[in-house]
Write a protein that binds this DNA or RNA. Sequence first.
DNA 1: CCAACGTATGAATAATTGTTCATGTATTAA
DNA 2: TTAATACATGAACAATTATTCATACGTTGG
Lengths: 120, 120
Amino acid sequence: MREQDCDVCEQLCEHPQSICLAKAEMLSDDAVHELAETFKILGDSTRIKILHALSKRELCVCDIVAVVQMGQSAVSHQLRLLRGSRLVKYRKEGKMVWYSLDDEHISLLLSQGIEHIAHR
Amino acid sequence: MREQDCDVCEQLCEHPQSICLAKAEMLSDDAVHELAETFKILGDSTRIKILHALSKRELCVCDIVAVVQMGQSAVSHQLRLLRGSRLVKYRKEGKMVWYSLDDEHISLLLSQGIEHIAHR
DNA sequence: CCAACGTATGAATAATTGTTCATGTATTAA
DNA sequence: TTAATACATGAACAATTATTCATACGTTGG
């Protein structure tokens, strides 16, 4: 989209071209929503601990419980959310369920976040 | 830390070495909290829209209002949160305040997230 | 089959969060 | 100075969320 394609109507403080371009480039509602959902899932201390632990090695649920020091039920609820956002995957082995990060994206997202907070 | 450094006490389903290693590698409470806070801020549709728009160009508040189509007050509140997490920076020019992403990390975080949701 | 273990889930509650409304502050122009 | 504009903020309310408790499910060993 070229800047010229944007209607230019003079109005108070607004900058119509910027607004029009920004609207044109906007992500779809679905994408925005899914993105927000994903980050929302990342936005919890318990889940960050779980993900960070899983970024090093596969763990079964009761190991995760021991690592993050929360109740088994609470951990299971969080794991469900993490599965729902495809941030973790799992495999069953008898009674146990082994969790790991869904792919390397997730590790990258985490490190990117760690870099952000490290930068001051 | 070597695996051998970990106490190995037999216990139900737990894998003491994994647990011990995971605990040793754990992020500090502060880091975990700050990381979670940062992602939590990213985890809202309105703020995603704002950040995505700002990833293309600097915008003043009333442009942002027009782009995300929310009340000025709501946008201001969200901008405050974004400033608080150092996700955006701003400069004043007369009556207007121009916002932009704080640094390239933020863009990367966004694209990383977009890649994640794109991967199905 | 039964009991025990590892994990998942529904309901309830407490805490957190987003938006709106009303109002406040800072800057500019008249 | 006054009025208008651009933006920020406090309080209140509705909506969402995390944890706990109780219980259910699925697998294994006896």
